[in-house]
Design a protein around this nucleic acid. Structure first.
Lengths: 230, 230
DNA sequence: GTCTCTATGTGCGCTGCCAGACAGAAAAGT
DNA sequence: ACTTTTCTGTCTGGCAGCGCACATAGAGAC
């Protein structure tokens, strides 16, 4: 079941889960597709199963900066459980794959009907906040290398694969640095045999090593998730 | 009423507000006092009226970094409405003054009893998330000067006064920079006649000018608050 | 009045990252 | 085949902020 269902849905009691699944439709996450924009009413919520999504914020004229990642462990659209119709951030597909999708009307109805669903949404939102705070500190204090390693690990977890498509330009947007900065950090990771990449395809060779190279935020995020969403 | 009540409490319908007020006790916010620590069960929630509180995150061995501010417009302890007992962040008193305080048991009871209270907590949490994301971007892209201006404006709003006690060392912690960096930025603001300070006492002389000097995040935060918590 | 502590201002060398530009090489389109 | 686009690596100059160290001066303690 692990790779075929979204983790938040798995956490629901059987009855609530089955109810929710009846209103879900399968949805293909297509690379680079935008799934949410701030100040626009959300139309669907998404529960990724194999693909994953980036939450990004835009500050002034700077390119989008990633502040969160959503994979099988999370969802997009939890703000509906807070009684707010508009998404707080941009969200775009980052790793292609499948997700479950629910129309807002249906999801609202399920929320009212299912206390466990509410409960899980709220706890997930708590984790998101903790991770946002962590990310803020990470942006301030950590350097490109460790942040890149962290990003790769987070991606690997959610992509459920050791190889995934990603270019340096793209990484430079996610991390909010110049592409050249990524080149430097990435070639160092490659030199150390932790990763291997070539024209848009990247493989993780040594996960342990990458974990050691990543900043503490990777472990911190995992832990806060585990604590709150058993 | 504006300066004698917490804004979130004001938003409650009369009946719910009166109920809540019966379990509130007045609490003096003493400078530098710690009100919350991560991974410790929250004992009280706080609704500031005149003082204000900083939310800070600790990353590794770096000094605490501010990621949010709580004054009359907000509260400390909203995570209880998410069904989580532990605070996500450190919180310490930043501007002395008065607050309303409620013991956790009482607050939980009120939450169950009052849907409007739940609703306001959830909406407030949404605003917090938006502000956290904004702060993350701010930390990445904005320079000391504008960030300092932003911080001073946020403080002034919550302190409800043009003069408040604050040293450069302290500001350097909040902003996550060296004290020397604050010295530079602050003396520039002073030279331009926007502020005046002397040995731990700072006055805002020209609010308009300070708003112009601040980064966009100040306005963005205010707007996201206004949109969600009318 | 003197001493000590705290707050503020400066100088110096360093580093991590930025901005912009360019080059080679692999993929994709024709 | 050729051309064009995309991806990656390298260089040069520059700046914001860092770490460290030191100087000055106001405030409070004795």
């Amino acid at each position: 079941m692990a790779a075929t269902e979204n983790h938040l849905i798995e956490l629901l009691p059987r009855k609530d889960r089955l109810r929710l699944l009846t209103v879900c439709e399968p949805f293909e996450l297509v690379l680079s597709e935008t799934l949410a924009e701030p100040n626009k009413a959300t139309r669907h919520v998404y529960f990724p199963i194999t693909g994953f999504i980036s939450r990004v914020t835009k500050i002034g004229k700077n390119p989008a900066l990633e502040v969160g990642m959503v994979g099988r462990e999370g969802m997009l659209g939890a703000h509906l459980a807070q009684g707010v119709a508009n998404a707080p951030l941009h969200a775009l597909v980052q790793g292609q794959g499948m997700a479950r999708r629910i129309a807002v009307v249906d999801f609202r109805r399920e929320l009212v009907a299912s206390l466990p669903l509410q409960r899980i949404m709220h706890r997930y939102l708590y984790v998101l906040m903790a991770q946002l705070a962590e990310t803020a500190g990470c942006l301030r204090y950590h350097q490109i290398g460790p942040r890149l390693a962290r990003w790769l690990l987070m991606s690997q977890d959610r992509a459920n694969a050791d190889t995934f498509p990603v270019t340096q330009v793209f990484l430079s947007y996610m991390l909010g640095v110049r592409r050249v900065g990524v080149t430097g950090a990435a070639s160092e990771l490659q030199r150390d045999g932790l990763i291997e990449y070539h024209r848009g395809h990247l493989s993780v060779l040594n996960r342990r090593g990458l974990e050691a190279a990543a900043c503490s935020c990777y472990a911190a995020d995992k832990q806060s998730y585990r604590k709150v969403l058993a």
